[in-house]
């Protein structure tokens, strides 16, 4: 029999190294010879989108298009250490360093423009679309490219570095009192599943993912993370197990270590909730890990809703679910017999 059920799960996730460990990020913003921007920052692009969103933050500050910001994160000689691309920390932590470095760079570039335009002050100077001008006397104007070639003629490079360190407090080892992480990202996910009681197979039919992001720097990438996090969580809930026995990984190939395919992925309804965090770059918090966290329990709770059986050990593979169904059926039959015997007695 095919039985349907729905389940929900909430989760929270504290980003960053945490527990008082100095979570430090640094970025360098540099004017390239052609007037475009080099953003030197050690936020490895692991697929999460750092090479897209870090330029967006920088571009926002400088009033340019993010295509004109070129991020460099590949060669250890070309950027400073900004920590690991993990702990969902790059958007918040390194994003803040990029924000601060971009703001400092903007000030420095305006000062270069002041000198170049022979003004007494940077007051009133406007910056947008790679141009800098004085609205009260618009002929006093220059461009990023012009300033870049001027700097080159003087043998100078304009590069500004700034950093950010997150705020956490080491916990008391006896009580746990402290600030282990900050900020936290929240979410509420739900699923609808169909359980085949003859085979134990579980299929997820629909998913609803409501994700707090602080602010979405790039909604497409947030949705991509939700898709990816959901898929990974689905595999964790229903398929994936290395089958480690006596230290040996039994399921060491894709014939045995089963991961979701496109056929297993339901319609995923995605909702982005923005509630900007003051200390974050434009309010944005990390979401790379959070998007996976509530998926498994949302599925397990839906399985219970469908068949009235709880799975306490992952993954809920067909054999595990079927065994639980059979055990439940036998237990109920036994109880019924016992009840019958009592009644007869």
């Amino acid at each position: 029999m095919l039985k349907r059920g729905r389940g929900i799960a909430l989760s929270w996730y504290g980003t960053g190294y945490g527990n008082g460990f100095p979570d430090y990020s640094v970025a360098t913003v540099e004017l390239a010879e052609n007037g475009e921007i080099l953003l030197r920052v050690g936020a490895t692009e692991v697929g999460q989108g750092s090479k897209t969103i870090m330029p967006q933050v920088c571009a926002e500050v400088l009033g340019i298009h993010s295509d004109q910001v070129h991020m460099i994160c590949e060669d250890t000689r070309e950027f400073l250490d900004s920590g690991t691309a993990a702990a969902s920390r790059q958007t918040y932590n390194t994003g803040n360093a990029v924000l601060k470095a971009s703001e400092s760079f903007k000030k420095a570039l305006l000062e270069e423009a002041r000198l170049y335009l022979k003004l007494n002050s940077t007051a009133g100077l406007e910056m947008a679309d790679q141009k800098i001008w004085l609205p009260i006397f618009p002929s006093r104007k220059t461009t990023f490219a012009e300033l870049a070639s001027h700097l080159k003629s003087e043998g100078r490079v304009l590069a500004v570095t700034d950093s950010f360190t997150a705020q956490t407090i080491g916990m008391n080892p006896e009580t746990g009192e402290g600030v282990p992480y900050w900020p936290y990202t929240f979410n509420a996910y739900g699923t609808e599943v169909e359980v085949d009681t003859e085979t134990g197979r579980v299929q997820v039919l629909q998913a609803w993912c409501v994700q707090d992001v602080g602010r979405a720097i790039n909604p497409d990438l947030v949705e991509g993370q939700i898709d990816g996090g959901f898929v990974m969580g689905l595999g964790y809930a229903l398929y994936e197990d290395l089958g480690v026995k006596d230290g040996v990984i039994k399921n060491n190939k894709f014939a045995k270590y089963i991961i979701p395919t496109a056929m297993d992925i339901p319609t995923i309804h995605k909702y982005i909730v923005e509630d900007p965090e003051n200390t974050a770059p434009y309010g944005a918090k990390g979401i790379g890990e959070p998007t996976m966290v509530p998926v498994a329990p949302a599925i397990l709770n839906a399985i219970y809703d469908a068949i009235g059986i709880r799975i306490f050990e992952l993954p809920a593979t067909p054999d595990v679910v079927l065994k639980a169904i059979v055990a439940d059926r036998e237990a109920k039959a036994k109880a019924a017999v016992a009840e019958g015997a009592d009644a007869n007695g």
């Binding site: 746990g176 509420a188 609808e192 909730v273 509630d275």
Partner: peptide
């Protein structure tokens, strides 16, 4: 841990939206 969540805690909103959607 005794940490005060001072801002950006829209979990109630998330759950309301989820409930509405489902």
């Amino acid at each position: 841990n005794g940490q005060v969540l001072t801002e950006s805690v829209p979990l109630e909103t998330c759950l309301e939206i989820l409930n509405q959607a489902m």
